[in-house]
Amino acid sequence: MSMRFSAMLAFSLMATPVLAAGGGGSTGTDTTPPPPKVSPMKCKPGQVAKVVMKMGKKKTICVKVMGSNLDDRDLYHQGWVLAKAGEYDWAIEVLSSIKNQNNADVLTMLGYSNRKAGRFEVGFAYYDQALALDPKFIRAREYLGEGLVAQGKIDLAKVQLDEIRKISGTGSEEYKDLAKAIDTGI
């Protein structure tokens, strides 16, 4: 399947909590709802999946990101799925259409997408914004640390690892993932 023309977009408009106004993870644990259970939907770049009622039945269709009238939660989930699938520029387009940009989760995923697309400084700026909103947001610290590892700045990555340890201990997924990245240099 061509990345340019279509991608598997995991999506469902199941009832999940809406993103908080600030961001998740203020206690050192991730409070962002997990991505919804998946039902595959193929959309073209610049589009998102939307559930509509047709003849009394729910149907999922692809619509342009701008003007989709999807709520922030649904746009966040679709942006998250796209970013994790390696569709970074498409994810940025979807995440940038979220109305509440003053959200640590949104800023972190924008940072992740830009960093993974090779725009490290842009990604780091988004992580800084997320951490300004919520200094204890360990996912932002993990991704920032991973970016620092990718740049060979292991000492600075270890600072982020230590911050995660102070916030959530050594048992969190974020701590373990960043520790592994530091150990392997990846």
Rank of each mutant, 00 (worst) to 15 (best):
R141D: 01
Y127D: 03
S113T: 11
V106Y: 08
A49H: 02
A49L: 05
T29D: 05
P35N: 15
H77M: 13
N103V: 11
T31Y: 05
G185R: 05
N100W: 12
M53P: 00
R4S: 06
F11L: 07
K42H: 10
M3F: 04
S12A: 14
K136N: 15
F5G: 01
A181R: 04
V65A: 12
L131F: 02
G25V: 01
K166M: 10
G145E: 00
G185F: 14
A83W: 04
Y88P: 02
E142L: 06
I164Y: 08
N100V: 13
K136P: 02
N69V: 10
Q101R: 15
L156E: 15
A150V: 06
L13P: 01
L144D: 03
K180P: 00
M53V: 14
N114R: 08
G145T: 01
E142Q: 13
V52M: 09
T27H: 12
C62K: 00
L107V: 03
K54W: 04
I186R: 15
L82I: 00
C62W: 07
V51W: 08
S2R: 09
T60H: 01
S39T: 12
R165S: 14
T16K: 13
G118S: 13
N103F: 11
T170I: 15
K58F: 06
G23M: 08
E87T: 01
S12Q: 12
A15E: 14
I154G: 09
Y143P: 00
V38C: 06
N102K: 10
V159W: 00
A7T: 09
M1L: 10
L107D: 02
D71F: 05
L75F: 02
T16I: 14
T29W: 06
T29M: 12
P135R: 12
G152L: 08
L131N: 07
T108C: 11
A181L: 04
D105R: 03
L131T: 00
V159I: 13
S39E: 11
N69A: 13
K50D: 11
L148W: 03
Q129T: 02
S172G: 08
R119V: 03
V149P: 08
P34A: 11
D71M: 10
Q151A: 14
I167V: 15
A181G: 05
S2M: 13
V52Q: 11
P45W: 05
P34S: 10
D72Y: 05
K42A: 14
Y127R: 05
G111Y: 00
I98L: 14
G152R: 10
T170P: 03
E163F: 06
R115S: 11
D162W: 05
A83H: 08
K50G: 11
F124H: 07
V81F: 07
D162S: 13
T29H: 07
A140L: 04
P17H: 14
F137Q: 01
F11E: 09
R115D: 02
V106T: 12
G56C: 12
Y127C: 01
A85G: 12
K84N: 15
A130N: 01
